[in-house]
Each structure stands twice: as C-alpha cells, then as structure tokens.
Nucleic acid binder design. Structure first.
Lengths: 216, 216, 216, 216
DNA sequence: AATGAATGAGTATTCATTCAT
DNA sequence: AATGAATGAATACTCATTCAT
C-alpha cells in the first residue's frame, strides 16, 4: 500500500498533526468515498459520518475539502512515481525494463486501487495551483523514454512513436481502475503479465519477440 | 460527428421537442461544459448562460439535469456502438476486423471527443436506472468476441485471455479522451493506425505478424 | 431621503433588476438592521426574515452580503457628497458657506440617519477594493477648503489649521449618529444651527463674529 | 497609558488571575485586534495566535469572548472618567476648567488610542447587562455641567444648550479615534489645544474671548 | 497552565427545481 | 417559449466553547 508521508504541508495549516493515525484514517476514508461517488458528489458530511465526528470537526484536520483530494492524490502519485522510477532503473535490458515497468505499474494500481482511482478520475478537480504541483506527465515521460531506448537498440518497430506508444501503454494500464474489482476472479499478477506482454510485444520488431512462455 | 436521433425518449415527457434544432444545440452545449468541468461541477446556470436563456427556462427542454447527461451519453454511446458493430462485421479476416474495429473506435472517439469524454468520464454519475439502460459492456463483448474468433483460428497467442485483451484494447483506446486535443499536432489517423497495429500485433502469434506496411 | 440610483453595478451580477421597488426595499431593510446590530452581527437570515423570503432567495438580488453593505454605503455617501458640494458652492460669503455646509451636513445626516449610521460606523468593514471606490476623504477636503478660503480672507484665526478644524467639524457633526434618535425631543434644525454657529464661531477672529441672533 | 486595575471583577469568576502580567498582555492583544478588525470580526483564534496559545487555552483567562471586550472597555472607561473628573475639578475658572477637560480628554484618547477605539466603536456590542455597568453618559453629564456653570456666570452665549454643546464637544474629540495615527505628523498637544480653543471659543459670548495666546 | 480534539449551532452561499405570469 | 422570483435542501466552512488529559 501507499506509504504516506507526514501530513502537514501548508503554512497556515491547522495547528498540529499530533495524532497521525487519525489523519491517515481520515485520508483513507476520504479516498474511499471519493473513489465510490466522485469528488464533487462526496460531501464532507459523508466523510464526517464515516470518520465519526461532526462535519465541522473535520476542519481540525483539513483546511478545505480540496485539501483532502490533494493529499490523497499527491500521496498515491508520488509513491507511484517512485515505484515507477525504481522499476525503470532495475533491469539491464531496455525491453525487460519496459515489461517490468508495465507490470509494476499495473500491480501498484491494483494494490492501491482506491487511491489510484481518485488520482486518475479526479485529477482535474484539483485547483489549478495544486494540479501544477503534481508532475503528472512524468509517467508518460518515463515510459516513452524506455521505449525510445529500446528503439535506439533496434528492438522496437521503426514506425512506433515512443510518446504515442507510451500513451497507449498508460491508457491500457490506467484503465484497469475502471473495471478491476477485488474478488472479481482476476489475479493481479495475471493482469500485469498479460498487459506487459501484449503491450511490449506489440511494439517490438518481430525477431525480437521473446518466447511468450509460461514461466511467469 | 454523432448523428443524433430523435429527442423524445421517455413516455412521461413534457411537451418537448418542438424545435429540434434548439434541442440539439442545448445537448451540444451541455456536452461541452460537462466535458470541460465535469457533470457535477457544471451548473444549469453555466448551461443556461451559454444557451442564452435563464436557467429556469431550461425546463422547457429537460425534466432534470440528469436528463441532459443521459441524453448526451445515450446518443454518443448508441451511435458509437452501431459504428463498432458495422466495423466488426465488415472484413472477412478476423484479425483485420479487429484492426478495423480499433481504428474505427479511436477515430469515432476523436471525432466525437466532447461527447465521448462525457460518456467515458461521467457514466457513473447517471442514476442507476438510466445507467442500466446503456449496455456499456457491449464494447468489451464485441472486441473480446473478435479476439476469440482470431484465437480460434490460431492467430492469437494461446495464453491471451480475450476478455482481458479486450479490456487492454479498450483502455488504450478510451484513454485517448484524456490527452487528445484537436490541433495538438497529432493526426487522428496516425493515432488510430498505431494503436491498431500495436494492440493487435501484441496479441498475435509471431508468424502471423503482418508486415506493418504503408497501405494505411 | 437618499435618492438612490439604479441597482445593478457589477458585471456578473444576478441577471436583471426588473423589480426596482423590491431592491430598494431590500436596501432599506439591510440598512436598518446593519444600523441596529452592526454589519457583522447581522445575518442574512435577519434580513431575509424581514424581507419575507428565505435567505437563499436574497441571492436573486445580491451577489454577497458585502454587496448590501457597499450599496447602502455608496448610495448615502454619494448623495451626501453631492449635497455637500452643492452647499459649498451656494453662498457668496465663505463663512456663510461654511455655516451652510455644516447645517446641511447635519440635516442630511439626521434625515438619512439609518444609512449614515451604516456609512459612518461600518465603513471599515468593506473589502479593501470597495472601500477604495469611495473617496471618503472628500468631505474633509471640501470643508478644509472652505476654512482655508475664509482664513485667506482674514476671517479665521491665524492659528487654526484648516485640516484639523475640518476634522473637528466633521467629528462633531458625524457624532450625531451616535446619540440622535427621532422623537427624542431635539429638532434637527436646532441641532444643525447650534452646531453651525458653535463650530464656525469657534474658528473666527473675534471681530468677525456675526450677531448670534435668533432668526434661525 | 491606562493604568489598569486588578483583574477580577465578577463574583463567579473561574480560578483566574494567577499571573496578572499575562492577563494584562492578553487584554492588550485583544484590544489591539478589536481596534483593528472590529470585535465581531475578531476571532479568538486571532487573539490566541498572538498570545501564543491555542484558542481553547484562552479559557484559562476568560469565561467568554465578551469578557475581553468588557474588560477592555471598562478599564479604559473608568480610568478615563477618573481623569475627566480630576480635570473638571482642577481649575477655578469654569471656562478654563472646560478647556482643561477638552484638552485632557483628547490627550487621554490619543494616549490610549487602541483602547479608546474599542470603547468608542464597540460599546454597542456589549451585552445589555454589561453595557448597563458602564455609565457612558457621565462624560456628557460632566461636560454639560461645566458648560452650564460657565453659562450661569454669563460667559456662554445664552442660546447655547449645554447638553447639545457637550455632545458637539464630545463628538469632535471622540472622532479623533477615527483619523489619528501615531507618526502621522500631528502632535497630540497641538490637536488638544486647537480643539479646546475652537470648541470653547465657539460657545463663549464675544467679550469673553480670551486672547488665543501661547502659554499652552 | 496548556493541549488538542471535538462540539453544536450557525453562516454565507449554491443550486436544481417550481411556478405564476 | 421564456421570464424572474422564489423555494428548500444542502454545502463548505466558521467559531465560541467544552473537556479529558
């Protein structure tokens, strides 16, 4: 799961954040309801009810509703980006790196389904200032970079545009939040592997096709 | 663009639809604002402003805000589905059919970017009853069917799960609404072709790889 | 009474202001309650109750609570300033002009007691932008100008600083809103005349004292 | 500055006033913010921030927000009234007494600008009970008494109403809180002297005009 | 003395919807 | 078809006050 950071991040924030456990709990509740109903359709009353306080009391933890969205989004984004960067630097073979990245991205998304749903579906609802704080294009940049590397090695079809291919990869992977439900009979590993194979194989030159074997 | 059908769609409708041109205009305005701000963040005031009437006057055209969303979604969905079905029945070769479907789906999405954005992003905001009226799973069913056909012909890798592959295809294609902007320098044909090639090639057995030639 | 202007004055104001009578009524009610309880202590509920609508309905007439304060203040200020300017240009003798101005200012204040109370007591509660729209220093400038004129004619004691004397005059006159109550037994004319005589005589050189006679 | 008295003033007080220095500090902070923003626009949070505690902790010093206002007002009022009474009993000549009182009142006001601002501007915000504890009319009574004395001696114009003249004097003097700012280039003595001369001379019969000499 | 969490009543504001004209 | 006034329920947010620790 997402290893969330310390809570306070704004200058004139509510005094302290002594009880970090409670803050984490609030974030989780907010994320869950945002994911289920959408940010705009979620009321602070919804959140307060589940948190077990009166709605006004939420302002001990937040300064605005937008705060909650931002914090959920920022947290899952930055951990996810760290994850992606780590994977993108792991393997030696660029194609394997790409596979690892896609697999890892899908697994992270499923592992943090609630938060990634909020990130992917409600990103536009952030205020302009806060949206600007989140370098959302990084995902695309990293993946396109890997594809370009593999292309430079002659492993990727020459007519593949790395940016476009990266968008296809991200689209396929990110879309998972729209249909995956835990307990729905589909194993995360299965999804991650099939997606990685299909998307990577789709851009490779034929001779470079790895035996699509069963070892995974 | 979507060739929208007749307007009335419910039995207990008010004395609507006298001026069908105005109704179409209203739908287009609503779709545009829904796409830009999100359904929940759009007020009837926003729509009325652009439509050039007072917000109360909108109720000569609709019975509820939900009406507008439903009508936009239903319209773009059903035309899109017709489109997909036509494409899925066109070619003789199942692999070519699949390619044609992906290409056609991407082109339709870009051609109707505003409306598909609303469909894809705001579908969950529909009331349960109205959501049930839209067989959203059909897209997946059709595409999975084509993949299964190709797999039956031995053209698709045996470890490919058609449903999962269909979800990957749909994800990649649908995601386009998140990043495509007209005038952004990317040609719809280019996107459609690259997506079709990459996604189809990714699931084929190696020998079946068609030369990624230039006839498109 | 204050001859208030047309209501709409902001770009994105509520649609129209067809029923101007109702708008005037709202302004009067708001002024009355602001005068009685203070701006900050007045709730829109208070105003709505007296206006006979639900509080949300007030937003057909205003865009914010601040709007109401501004409109009351702007209106009574600008009419009052017109009045002062007219008086300051009426008489030929600078000393008589000054007397007329003081008398007229006091009478205007009493005549528009509710609105001037709001102006004088709640001016600081306006937002910075709106406060800047009201040239509140004009009163002082005009009166100091008259005093300087009279001083130039040798009618005013040489050690009188016109700005300071103007502030004394304004203070005495403005303070009336703090104690005057209609029906309190004091006639507006009596107050206006006594104030004018006392304040003007206090700054004149002795020989210039007009017979403080009884014709007023 | 105001030499404030002992803190406890009500019988049913909480275990207050242990640290009288802190209490004085709190009063000064509260007065300053009340003067700047107005009582109603000041939050306990504002005060707590400047006092350096959490807002809940203020209740170790006060029983209610109203307490703070009352204490500031009561303190500056009673010291000011003592001051006025002393001045009103000092000189032998009633006219000189009046001059001394006006001068002294203006100087006291400027010397205690923050507190007098709160007294003069926020008096009405006190609860009815607490307002009743402050004999605010005393100022007027004392000054009107002095004027009546001088009038009885034939020094004041016969058509001067002592009460009305007292209100004019108080208005001019009290209004100083609305415009005086320390460092604004105006000396307190200058203001006090000019006000005293102007206001007193304005009510005297002509022959009684004292040479506006320099001994002050 | 002070904290920090919570209360509860309120406060301006929003907005889909209604309806008489 | 459209207006404009109003509704009513909700909505984010505020703030004086309480209280266990």
């Amino acid at each position: 799961m997402v290893n969330r950071r310390r809570a306070p991040r704004t200058d004139t924030a509510p005094p302290f954040r002594a009880d970090d456990g409670r803050w984490q709990e609030l974030l989780e509740i907010a994320a869950r309801i945002f994911a289920r109903k959408g940010y705009r359709s979620t009321t602070l009353q919804d959140i307060a009810d589940e948190f077990g306080v009166l709605k006004g009391s939420l302002y001990h933890y937040i300064r605005s509703k937008d705060d909650l969205l931002f914090e959920v989004v920022r947290s899952v984004f930055s951990t996810g980006l760290d994850n992606l960067r780590r994977l993108a630097g792991s393997e030696h073979d660029p194609v394997e790196r790409l596979r690892a990245v896609i697999r890892g991205h899908v697994l992270y998304l499923i592992d943090n389904l609630v938060e990634t749903t909020v990130l992917l579906h409600e990103f536009d609802q952030l205020s302009d200032e806060r949206r600007a704080e989140i370098p959302i294009r990084e995902y695309q940049t990293i993946i396109a970079g890997l594809i370009a590397d593999a292309k430079a090695d002659g492993l990727v079809k020459p007519d593949v545009d790395p940016q476009l291919a990266a968008l296809a990869v991200l689209g396929a992977a990110n879309w998972v939040y729209r249909w995956f439900r835990p307990g729905g009979g589909r194993m995360p590993e299965e999804i991650a592997n099939q997606y990685a194979d299909m998307l990577v194989d789709g851009m490779l030159v034929r001779g470079e096709l790895r035996p699509a074997s069963g070892l995974r």
